[in-house]
């Protein structure tokens, strides 16, 4: 009788110990995964480091490349003079994406021939407002994009 009792107590202890371990594991597992840094390392704040550099922009036939900026789409272009300029890429007319036309020296929306100069100004066509211009900073081979202070 005494033997049976002690084996049962053993079982309960084992059961409780196993449950405790499993619970600790269930808590530790997500915590460990949380601590493990994600690919992008840190949050993209208002300053964004582009995932590409000058060579990739140059390689594009249009000398321009779009990028994701928070919830918006941006475009960075290489001007003839060799400057990098970045803008919100969504046309202010009907939300199409603008493209760089180095042949015309403009940003062009193919949907309704909306045109913006390389300062983002809406120079012709239906767009009612200029494109938002971003601040571009080059540090070594890295390109950083920032929203202009209001």
């Amino acid at each position: 009788m005494a033997k049976k009792d002690s084996s049962r107590r053993d079982f309960i202890s084992w059961f409780l110990g196993g449950g405790t371990l499993a619970t600790l594991g269930a808590i530790a597992y997500p915590a460990m995964r949380f601590i493990n840094p994600p690919e992008s390392g840190e949050a993209n704040v208002s300053q964004l480091k582009l995932p590409f550099g000058r060579p990739e922009i140059q390689a594009e036939p249009s000398n321009g490349k779009t990028f994701k900026f928070g919830r918006d789409l941006g475009i960075i272009v290489l001007t003839e003079a060799g400057d990098l300029r970045a803008f919100a890429a969504t046309c202010t007319h009907l939300d199409c994406t603008v493209q760089h036309r180095p042949d015309l020296g403009i940003l062009w929306c193919s949907c309704h021939n909306g045109r913006y100069d390389l300062d983002g100004g809406n120079i012709s066509g239906p767009p009612p407002r200029p494109l938002e211009k971003y601040v571009v900073n080059e540090v070594g081979d890295d390109i950083f994009i920032k929203k202009e202070e209001v």
């Binding site: 309960i12 059961f15 196993g18 449950g19 499993a22 619970t23």
Partner: peptide, 9 residues
């Protein structure tokens, strides 16, 4: 797991 531990307890 938590339930198992609770039952054990």
């Amino acid at each position: 797991f938590i339930t198992l531990m609770a039952i054990g307890l």
